[in-house]
Design a protein around this nucleic acid. Structure first.
Lengths: 189, 189
DNA sequence: TTTATTTCTTAAGATACCTTAATCTTTTTG
DNA sequence: CAAAAAGATTAAGGTATCTTAAGAAATAAA
C-alpha cells in the first residue's frame, strides 16, 4: 500500500522513501464494504481519499428524487467532494463504494500539516488538481458535443470493461440518460 | 494593476509588497481589442491569463460547426485552456475577448521559475485551481439537475446584469440551448 | 443617414429523450 | 433451493428542445 502510494506520487514529483513515510504517517487506511458510504448528503466532507483498491461512485439525488452519478473513482485516484471540503459546507453528494474498497484518507488539517513539513506535496496536489480539472473538462466537452448515444459509444470504446464492473443503470445515470433509453440504444446496434 | 493583483493574491495567501513585485516581474501585460483572440483552435496554450479588465469567452466549435461556449472569464479571474496548457497539446478551444480586455499573462516556464523563487505561489495556484474546480462542478450540477428554462432563470437570478454585457445568443450557447429556444423561454414569462 | 451587419423573434415540423408501467432476467439472500 | 431483491428490456405516448427559414429589430459601419 505504501509502495503503491510511492509509485503514484512519483508520477508527478519525485519523493524519497523517507518523504513518502512522512506523508504516509498522516494518512489513515480505511476499508469500506460494497454499498457502504464514504460520505453522505449533509455530512461535512473533511477528507480526501486516495483509492488503493476498489471502486466508488459520487452521486447526488436530484429534485425528482433520482440518483445522478457525477463521477466514478477507481484505484490510484483521489476522490472527495471538493465543494464541501473546500468551502466547509454540508455535502450535497454521496460517495459510495460499489465494490469493497480500500482508501488512504487524510483530513484537511492533517494535509495542511503535511504541506508544512513537505512543501513538495503542495506542488503535487496542485498538479493533481489540475489533472482532475482537465478530466472534468473533458467530460463536459463530451456532454456538450455529443448525444446520449454517442456518449455511450465513447465510453464503450474507451473503457470496454467498465460496463462489466458497473450495473447498466448506473452507466445510464453517468451518461445522463435514463436506463430505458440506454436499453433502447443498445438494442439498435 | 499591480495593486489589483496584490489584492487578489491576498484573498488566498498573504504576500508582501516585494513578493508581489517579484511575481509581477514574471507577468506580461497584454491588451486585446473586442473580438480579438487570446487563443485559437490549433494553437498551443502556453499561458495563464489573469484578467484585470474586460470579458472573454472560452468556446469550441462542435461537430455541426456551431459555437459552444464553455465558460466566460471576467475581471479577477484566471483563464487558460487547462487541457492544452497542461498536456501541451493543440487547443480545441478559442478564447476570445468580448470587450476590450487587459490581462497579465504568464508562460508555463515563467510560472515554474516563479514557483521556485516564491514557493508560496505554488500554494496559491493550488488553491485557485481548487476553486476553479468547485466552480466547474457547480456548473455541472446545474446542468445535470435543471432544464434549459431553469438554467436561464438561475443565471438571471444570480447575475442579473450579465445578460446586458453579453448578446443573448451567447447566453443561449453557454446554457446549452439554441437562441431560438431561449427566445421562446423569455417570451413565456 | 443610409446601408450593412449583427442580433432577436416567430412559427411549424421534426427528433432525441423521457415517463410510465408491465414483464422478463439475473443476482442476492435466507 | 426458493423467495426476494435488483437490474434490464419493451412499448406506447408525451415533452423539451432542435431545425429550418423567414422576417423584424438593433447596432455598427460607411
Amino acid at each position: 500500500m505504501k509502495q503503491q502510494l510511492h509509485n503514484y506520487l512519483n508520477r508527478y514529483v519525485t519523493f524519497s522513501e523517507e518523504e513518502v513515510n512522512l506523508f504516509y504517517n498522516y494518512l489513515t487506511p480505511k476499508t469500506f464494504q460494497k454499498k457502504e458510504y464514504l460520505l453522505k448528503e449533509g455530512d461535512l466532507c473533511k477528507d480526501k481519499f486516495f483509492i488503493t483498491e476498489g471502486l466508488v461512485r459520487i452521486y447526488k439525488i436530484d429534485l425528482k428524487g433520482k440518483e445522478k452519478i457525477a463521477h466514478f473513482g477507481i484505484e490510484n485516484w483521489w476522490t472527495t467532494n471538493m465543494e464541501s471540503y473546500i468551502l466547509e459546507q454540508p455535502s450535497q453528494l454521496y460517495i459510495q463504494a460499489l465494490e469493497n474498497t480500500s482508501v488512504l484518507s487524510i483530513s484537511k488539517t492533517n494535509l495542511e500539516k503535511a504541506f508544512k513539513k513537505l512543501p513538495k506535496l503542495e506542488r503535487m496536489f496542485r498538479i493533481i488538481t489540475e489533472n482532475m480539472f482537465v478530466a472534468i473538462e473533458r467530460k463536459n466537452e463530451l456532454y456538450m458535443k455529443f448525444s446520449g448515444k454517442d456518449r455511450y459509444q465513447n465510453l464503450v470504446d474507451r473503457i470496454p470493461d467498465f460496463a462489466q464492473r458497473v450495473p447498466q443503470y448506473m452507466i445510464a445515470s453517468y451518461l445522463d440518460i435514463t436506463p430505458e433509453y440506454l436499453s433502447e440504444i443498445r438494442k439498435n446496434k
